[in-house]
Design a protein around this nucleic acid. Structure first.
Length: 563
DNA sequence: GTAGGGTTAG
């Protein structure tokens, strides 16, 4: 470490040394973390180092950092590594990086800790660079180094580099432990080509290793090989929470939502308490199924076990309630969340957008910005789709402009989709067409589909024909596109074209879909198809629905225990 | 003398 406080320039740019000294004086005195819980002072370890291990947030680490500088303890190289570690554990990666830079001769521990920080902050490329620097420094990588570098490789699908690391591990004669094994499997199974190697790695390890087996299960699932994963999972003797949650997450990721809920239920009946990942995945499955009762049950379960609602779980709850049609519950969860990140704001804004509450979306957007959270591209998808549902063309333009020029976000195809939809619905077809032509990338079927829908709505056969031509190129087998065009021609009185299209649909046996909505009663999902009025039990369902509403008012969550 | 699963949310 640098030897004096004056030359100690670890702070991010904008802080001068004199400011730092003043600041140190201000923070060094007030409440330090849990001083009363300190172990006895007979210990040889200096008090600030003990404190460092007890820090649970950034402010505390910074205070102890100040003490380390004042006491000169920072000058011992080992303490520099400890400080770095503390910044990584409280997820302040800028301070971690500055601390690392201020260490003059970082040892393997410092390198490992910094690599871990870079992986946690989703900078795997930097972690890989640091690994090369470690080798250039002539240091000898250890088991931790290999675990982290393999993790970085799997994050960027660097199969080639990963193989090289694998070779180096073998050549170095390191005895690979369970962690290295599971990291190798993760690395190889980040691409479908590597799965065979992953299987071989597992086969070459004699001990029973649940960690590595879980990794291979996740690998199969990430490559869509659900059957292989399930087989391996069923044969697993010691299933831990990670094994279960890998299955729940894997089913959800592969769109098999019902299976995800079934295995989640099995997890609970096997007396394994679900971890955060399993809760989030199963809530995601509920959201996609519209299974409000099951979602509410999971919410009640979380409350019952007294788990603190984390940002991640809270966000998954918001999304579930919003997608299951219960925006009020979503908003309640949102308001009660002690911490929110940009994803939580995105979930609630998109939720209100789905429900057509544009004004509320704008209000939330302002609150978010006022709270110092920087909107990302997803926030604008929510805002623009709210504009389009409400028909606010000028507001939509305003936000689109703000996104590009004020926030420097490059519009994605989804943003263009919202704008085309917005302009098209409002009948401003020439503007919509101009926007499509100005797009930097090639318009996809979503864009042309929205445009065709708008042309049909406003009986613009010339432009509609253009959209239809593009759609037949992009999606030649989608019956829906032909159907829409057929309706457009029929409405415009062009009977010849309309019948031509109808014969295309029947001759080629193209499938068309109909609008479907569903409600869930007593754990069973009932579907209603647009245009049909005689669902076999619709009267009964209506009566049950009324009863459910009454019950909900009386006991809130008590009725939903489907498991 | 400090350490490492999996990873979901818009």
């Amino acid at each position: 470490m640098k030897t004096s406080a004056e030359s100690y320039h670890f702070l991010p740019t904008g802080h001068s040394c004199s400011n730092w000294r003043l600041h140190m004086a201000a923070v060094a005195t007030p409440s330090l973390p849990n001083q009363n819980k300190l172990p006895s002072f007979s210990s040889r370890i200096p008090a600030p180092i003990v404190l460092l291990q007890m820090c649970s947030n950034f402010q505390e680490v910074r205070q102890v950092h100040a003490q380390l500088v004042v006491s000169g303890l920072i000058e011992r190289p080992i303490n520099g590594g400890r400080l770095l570690q503390a910044y990584v554990t409280v997820s302040n990666f800028n301070y971690a990086l500055s601390t690392f830079d201020s260490i003059s001769n970082p040892d393997v521990f410092a390198y490992n800790t910094m690599m871990r920080g870079l992986i946690l902050s989703k900078s795997p490329y930097h972690a890989l660079k640091l690994y090369s620097r470690l080798l250039l420094d002539g240091l000898k990588p250890d088991n931790y180094t290999y675990t982290f570098v393999l993790k970085a490789c799997s994050q960027v699908n660097a199969l080639f580099e990963g193989r090289e690391v694998h070779g180096r591990i073998i050549k170095a004669g390191i005895a690979p432990d369970t962690y290295i094994h599971s990291s190798l499997i993760n690395m190889y199974s980040s691409s479908s080509d590597g799965l065979v190697c992953a299987e071989r790695v597992l086969a070459g390890f004699s001990e029973d290793n649940t960690l590595a087996k879980n990794s291979l299960i996740s690998g199969y699932l990430s490559q869509g090989q659900v059957e292989s994963a399930r087989k391996m999972f069923d044969n697993l003797v010691a299933k831990d929470d990670a094994s279960w949650s890998a299955m729940v997450a894997g089913y959800t990721k592969n769109g098999m939502y019902a299976e995800a809920l079934v295995i989640f239920r099995k997890m609970l009946s096997s007396q394994v308490s679900p971890n955060e990942s399993a809760l989030v995945s199963s809530l995601c499955a509920c959201a996609n199924l519209g299974a409000l009762d099951q979602g509410k049950w999971i919410h009640a379960y979380i409350d019952r076990i007294g788990a603190r609602i984390s940002v991640t779980v809270g966000t998954a709850l918001i999304d579930m309630y919003a997608k299951c049609g219960s925006i009020e519950n979503a908003y309640e969860v949102f308001r009660k969340m002690p911490q929110k990140d940009v994803v939580s704001w995105g979930a609630i804004i998109s939720g209100f957008a789905i429900h057509g509450r544009a004004a509320k979306c704008f209000e939330l957007f302002d609150d978010m910005v006022a709270g110092g959270i920087h909107p990302n591209e997803v926030i604008f998808v929510g805002i623009l789709s709210a504009c389009s549902h409400a028909g606010y063309v000028e507001t939509g333009y305003k936000y689109f402009d703000q996104m590009v020029h004020h926030y420097g976000i490059k519009p994605s195809i989804e943003h263009y989709g919202c704008m085309v939809d917005l302009l098209g619905r409002a009948g401003r077809l020439a503007e919509a067409e101009g926007l499509i032509m100005s797009m930097p990338e090639l318009p996809n079927s979503v864009i042309w589909g929205a445009f065709l829908g708008a042309c049909r709505m406003h009986s613009d056969v010339r432009r509609g024909n253009l959209a239809f031509k593009h759609l037949t190129d992009l999606e030649p087998t989608s019956g829906d596109r032909y159907k829409l065009a057929g309706i457009m021609f029929a409405n415009a009185g062009e009977k010849e074209n309309a019948t031509k299209i109808r014969t295309i649909i029947t001759d080629n046996d193209l499938e068309t879909t109909r609008g479907v909505s569903s409600i869930e009663i007593d754990g069973v999902v009932h579907e209603f198809v647009a245009g049909t009025i005689n669902h076999s039990r619709h009267k009964e369902i209506y009566r049950m629905w009324e009863r459910v509403n009454r019950l909900l008012e009386i006991h809130e969550l008590e009725i939903c225990i489907p498991f």
